[in-house]
Computed example of a mutant assay.
Amino acid sequence: MIVLLALPLVACGSPGDPAPAPAPTTTAFARTPEDCTELTVTALEVQPGVANLFGTHAELLPKGQFVRVRIAIGNTGSRVHDTRSEDYQLVDTAAAGHRLGIDPMRVERQLFELQIGAGNRLEMDLWYDIPVGAVPHELRDTVCASTIPLPGR
């Protein structure tokens, strides 16, 4: 019985033990001009007015209305390219820009940073929380300074 009580103290180590190695650092994410020319983004579907989201661990209500934009990203190049979902801003018919909804993206388990292999295509959803009454018009790629028309707009 005494051995079991002493075991947790041994597992914690002693003050003379060396400190664990620091976690490796990563470089800052940056898209290149080549990423902009070799990635094609197409909006496939727009679903405005989503009233709430349910995930495996959360339920989320919008401040206004959730809008889901299904996109396809294709890599026409011969190497891996990077992109970030937060670089795509939703623009409404009044020309107001809306940033990506971080909480809806997490609830729906969508990626924030993507690597797309050469010749590959990826589909994903972008989620936004925009004011009630705002009408989605297009996506704006804030890094590549391009616009992506929404279907039916």
Rank of each mutant, 00 (worst) to 15 (best):
M1K: 10
M1E: 13
L4S: 10
L7I: 12
L9C: 06
V10E: 09
V10G: 09
V10A: 15
G13W: 05
S14K: 08
P15E: 00
G16L: 12
P18Y: 06
P18T: 09
P20D: 02
A21D: 14
A21K: 14
A21H: 11
A28K: 09
T32V: 04
D35C: 07
T37S: 15
E38H: 15
T40I: 07
V41G: 04
V41W: 03
T42N: 10
V46G: 01
V46H: 01
V46K: 03
G49A: 11
G49K: 08
A51H: 12
L53P: 01
L53G: 04
F54M: 12
G55T: 04
G55Q: 04
A58V: 04
E59W: 09
L60T: 07
P62D: 03
F66R: 00
F66I: 01
V67P: 00
R68T: 04
I71Y: 05
N75K: 00
S85A: 15
Q89W: 08
L90H: 02
D92E: 10
T93S: 15
G97Q: 09
P104G: 01
R106T: 13
R109Y: 11
F112M: 14
A118P: 11
A118G: 12
G119I: 01
L122Y: 15
E123Q: 15
L126G: 02
I130R: 00
P131Q: 11
V132F: 07
V135D: 06
E138C: 10
T142D: 15
V143P: 00
T147V: 08
P149S: 08
